[in-house]
Each structure stands twice: as C-alpha cells, then as structure tokens.
C-alpha cells in the first residue's frame, strides 16, 4: 500500500471491484514499483475485449491483463498464473507500473485505463505511450510519465530487491521522481494534465470551472441563433 507522504494524498489504494473510478488530488505518492519491461503492451493485452462486457467503468480491475494474469483451460479461468509479475507476492500491492516503449498502443478502448485504475495503479512510467491511451489517462486521473530507457532501467535496478521497502517517490508538485537510493529524475507532463491531477479535477470538473463562460455563451447564442437551440 502507498505510504501517505502528504495530507492531500488521501488515497488508500483500493482494490475493491465496486469502487467507482473517481478523481482524487495527486501531489505526491511513495509507492511500490512493478516492472513489466516489454515494449508495445497494447490495450487488448491490458484488457481483452471479452473482459469488457459490463455497462460500466467499474469492476474492470479483475480483467486487467487477464490473458497473462490467469491460467486457463479451454478458455475457462482456472486460477492465477503465479509467474505473472503482478501475482508475485512482492508486487501484489504495486502502485506504479514500469514498462517499455509504446505502452497502451492499439484500440482506443478507455477500459484499459479504467482497468489499471480499478486495479490500484496511480502512476504509469514507460518510455512512451500510445497517443489515445495517454489522453485517456489524463482524463481519468492516472499519471502517465514518459522517461528515457536508461532511467527506467535504473528504477528497475533500484527496486528489484525488496520492492516493498525500496519505494519510489513520485512528486508531481516538483515534477521529480526519487529512487530509493536518493537519486532524482525530472519528468515533464502537459500543463493542463498536471493542473487537473494536482487539483483532483476530473476532465469534466476542469471544464466546469468555466461554467459561467458556457452560460454566457449559450445565453448570447440563443439570441443570435434561436433556430439552433432546443
């Protein structure tokens, strides 16, 4: 579980399947890093389409990496695949996922982000991300950080032995990561995404800050284009 390093991080990582995907302020998080250092993890792998049959964004954590995470017999789940990284005891409470190039490529399904969040991830670190997937992260309060391969390798090396004790600090206020050995790595994200995350604004809340502007626009437009309004 994440250690609370700042009052504003009032997040206890909740692996419950019924918790709505909600937006909470993200300032700092010290968490366990799970390494998945492969390239091109596509959204079909993050959540296969057979796992997204619910009329809901919630409860999708169960389907996260379903093809890799469970064992199957003739298409039927038989149990956990104990070799899969997230099933290893030291990574069961991971908050931060570390991956390679082009994480989240492929289908635009937003379910990939909902599944990662519902499972309990708050931060993704990868060399690069699929474009639509990265937009979807920002809209759902998941922090996606792109870093060079050598930084990712360094973080992996620092956390490999005893990841629970060797946590990584993600500081969005300072735009810096701090490894367990004290080394720091600067990162950049889009300013609008950063603003939304720091203030716990979700995508809609962010726009509703301009609700008065919308009201004024609609009022004036109703006079200018009465035929267009209902």
């Amino acid at each position: 579980m994440s250690q609370l390093v700042n009052d504003s991080v009032n997040e206890s990582v909740n692996k419950s399947v019924n918790e709505p995907v909600s937006m909470k302020a993200f300032r700092q998080l010290e968490g366990i890093v799970a390494p998945m250092l492969i390239d091109n993890v596509d959204t079909d792998q993050i959540i296969p389409s057979r796992e997204m049959k619910r009329v809901s964004k919630t409860g999708l954590g169960q389907g996260l990496f379903a093809g890799w995470r469970y064992t199957y017999d003739g298409g039927k789940k038989t149990g956990d695949n104990t070799n899969f990284v997230l099933n290893r005891p030291e990574y069961r409470a991971a908050d931060i996922l570390l991956s390679g190039k082009n994480f989240g490529c492929g289908s635009s399904r937003e379910h990939a982000v909902w599944a990662l969040k519902d499972y309990g991830f708050r931060v993704l670190i990868a060399e690069s991300f699929g474009r639509i997937f990265r937009n979807n992260c920002a809209r759902n309060g998941l922090l996606a950080i792109a870093l060079p391969a050598e930084t990712i390798a360094a973080l992996e090396a620092q956390t490999r032995i005893d990841p629970e004790a060797r946590r990584v600090l993600v500081d969005l206020e300072a735009n810096v990561l701090r490894g367990p050995d004290g080394s720091t790595f600067a990162f950049e994200i889009a300013e609008s995404d950063r603003h939304m995350l720091l203030n716990g604004l979700d995508y809609i809340d962010f726009t509703l800050r301009f609700e008065a502007d919308i009201d004024r626009f609609v009022e004036a437009d109703r006079l200018a284009r009465p035929w267009a309004h209902r």
């Binding site: 937003e110 979807n136 809209r139 995508y203 809609i204 509703l208 919308i214």
Partner: peptide, 16 residues
C-alpha cells in the same frame, strides 16, 4: 468521440 468525451459533452454542452 470516446466515452470520457461523451460524458463531458452531455455534462457541459462542450468539448475541449
């Protein structure tokens, strides 16, 4: 538009 944009659209009458 995607699902998040869709919610945004009906909640705010706008898209960003």
């Amino acid at each position: 538009i995607g699902t998040s944009d869709c919610e945004h659209a009906i909640a705010t009458e706008t898209l960003r």
